[in-house]
Measured scan of single mutants.
Amino acid sequence: LELTLRVGDKTWHFKDVDEEFVRHLEELLKRGAHEREIEEIIREWLR
């Protein structure tokens, strides 16, 4: 999967994204996660 995600003024483009990561992001967005929380999840995933 490829994913382009825009949060606030930042845009990330990922290739070979894990479906579990996408589901986790979807859940965060559904519950109205704040920009900082989403950025933290992305940084963790990139490690």
Results as ranks from 00 to 15, higher is better:
residue 25 L to G: 00
residue 21 F to T: 03
residue 39 E to R: 04
residue 41 I to R: 09
residue 31 R to P: 02
residue 12 W to V: 01
residue 2 E to H: 14
residue 22 V to S: 02
residue 41 I to E: 09
residue 30 K to G: 08
residue 15 K to C: 05
residue 38 I to S: 01
residue 16 D to V: 13
residue 37 E to T: 07
residue 38 I to W: 03
residue 32 G to V: 05
residue 38 I to L: 08
residue 25 L to E: 00
residue 39 E to M: 09
residue 28 L to T: 06
residue 44 E to L: 11
residue 17 V to L: 03
residue 22 V to I: 06
residue 16 D to T: 14
residue 6 R to D: 06
residue 16 D to E: 10
residue 1 L to P: 13
residue 22 V to T: 03
residue 42 I to V: 06
residue 30 K to P: 01
residue 36 R to W: 14
residue 5 L to I: 15
residue 25 L to F: 01
residue 27 E to D: 13
residue 24 H to Q: 12
residue 26 E to S: 10
residue 1 L to E: 12
residue 26 E to G: 11
residue 21 F to M: 04
residue 2 E to A: 06
residue 3 L to E: 01
residue 38 I to C: 04
residue 2 E to Q: 10
residue 38 I to E: 01
residue 46 L to R: 05
residue 37 E to N: 05
residue 4 T to I: 15
residue 22 V to N: 01
residue 29 L to S: 05
residue 5 L to E: 00
residue 15 K to P: 04
residue 15 K to N: 07
residue 16 D to H: 14
residue 20 E to F: 10
residue 3 L to T: 04
residue 44 E to M: 10
residue 3 L to R: 05
residue 35 E to W: 14
residue 10 K to T: 13
residue 8 G to R: 02
residue 9 D to I: 03
residue 45 W to M: 05
residue 31 R to F: 09
residue 25 L to K: 00
residue 3 L to M: 06
residue 36 R to N: 14
residue 7 V to K: 01
residue 34 H to S: 14
residue 19 E to G: 11
residue 15 K to Y: 09
residue 40 E to H: 11
residue 1 L to R: 12
residue 19 E to C: 08
residue 7 V to W: 06
residue 41 I to W: 14
residue 40 E to I: 09
residue 15 K to T: 07
residue 39 E to W: 07
residue 42 I to P: 00
residue 20 E to L: 14
residue 33 A to K: 08
residue 20 E to I: 13
residue 36 R to T: 13
residue 17 V to R: 07
residue 20 E to W: 15
residue 33 A to G: 07
residue 29 L to R: 03
residue 5 L to M: 05
residue 7 V to Y: 05
residue 12 W to H: 02
residue 15 K to A: 06
residue 45 W to S: 03
residue 4 T to G: 02
residue 33 A to E: 05
residue 33 A to F: 09
residue 10 K to G: 02
residue 16 D to Q: 15
residue 31 R to Y: 11
residue 10 K to E: 05
residue 13 H to S: 05
residue 17 V to Y: 04
residue 9 D to G: 09
residue 18 D to V: 02
residue 46 L to C: 05
residue 16 D to W: 15
residue 3 L to Y: 10
residue 22 V to Q: 02
residue 1 L to C: 12
residue 25 L to H: 00
residue 13 H to Q: 05
residue 41 I to V: 14
residue 27 E to L: 13
residue 4 T to D: 05
residue 4 T to W: 10
residue 21 F to P: 00
residue 33 A to P: 03
residue 18 D to C: 03
residue 31 R to E: 09
residue 24 H to L: 11
residue 36 R to V: 12
residue 42 I to S: 01
residue 10 K to A: 06
residue 31 R to D: 09
residue 17 V to S: 14
residue 4 T to M: 09
residue 1 L to N: 15
residue 20 E to Q: 14
residue 1 L to T: 11
residue 23 R to L: 09
residue 18 D to Q: 06
residue 9 D to K: 06
residue 3 L to S: 02
residue 8 G to T: 01
residue 22 V to L: 03
residue 34 H to A: 13
residue 41 I to D: 03
residue 35 E to M: 08
residue 34 H to P: 14
residue 34 H to N: 14
residue 32 G to Q: 05
residue 10 K to Q: 08
residue 5 L to F: 13
residue 29 L to D: 02
residue 14 F to Y: 01
residue 26 E to F: 15
residue 14 F to G: 00
residue 36 R to C: 05
residue 36 R to L: 13
residue 39 E to Q: 06
residue 14 F to V: 03
residue 10 K to D: 03
residue 46 L to H: 08
residue 29 L to H: 04
residue 13 H to M: 04
residue 43 R to F: 12
residue 31 R to M: 12
residue 7 V to F: 05
residue 8 G to K: 02
residue 7 V to T: 02
residue 47 R to H: 11
residue 5 L to C: 04
residue 9 D to A: 06
residue 19 E to S: 14
residue 26 E to N: 10
residue 9 D to R: 04
residue 20 E to D: 13
residue 43 R to K: 12
residue 17 V to D: 10
residue 25 L to I: 11
residue 31 R to K: 13
residue 47 R to L: 10
residue 43 R to N: 11
residue 10 K to P: 00
residue 14 F to K: 00
residue 39 E to L: 08
residue 27 E to H: 11
residue 34 H to E: 12
residue 10 K to V: 14
residue 9 D to Q: 07
residue 7 V to A: 03
residue 6 R to Q: 15
residue 45 W to D: 01
residue 35 E to I: 13
residue 11 T to K: 03
residue 42 I to T: 01
residue 13 H to P: 01
residue 33 A to I: 11
residue 12 W to L: 02
residue 11 T to P: 00
residue 30 K to A: 12
residue 24 H to S: 12
residue 23 R to V: 06
residue 41 I to Y: 15
residue 23 R to P: 01
residue 23 R to K: 12
residue 1 L to H: 13
residue 5 L to S: 00
residue 15 K to W: 06
residue 12 W to A: 00
residue 24 H to W: 11
residue 32 G to S: 05
residue 32 G to P: 04
residue 11 T to D: 05
residue 15 K to S: 07
residue 9 D to Y: 02
residue 17 V to M: 04
residue 7 V to P: 00
residue 41 I to M: 12
residue 13 H to E: 03
residue 22 V to C: 02
residue 14 F to T: 00
residue 46 L to I: 12
residue 38 I to R: 01
residue 11 T to Q: 05
residue 21 F to W: 07
residue 45 W to Y: 15
residue 29 L to E: 03
residue 43 R to A: 10
residue 44 E to R: 10
residue 37 E to H: 08
residue 36 R to M: 14
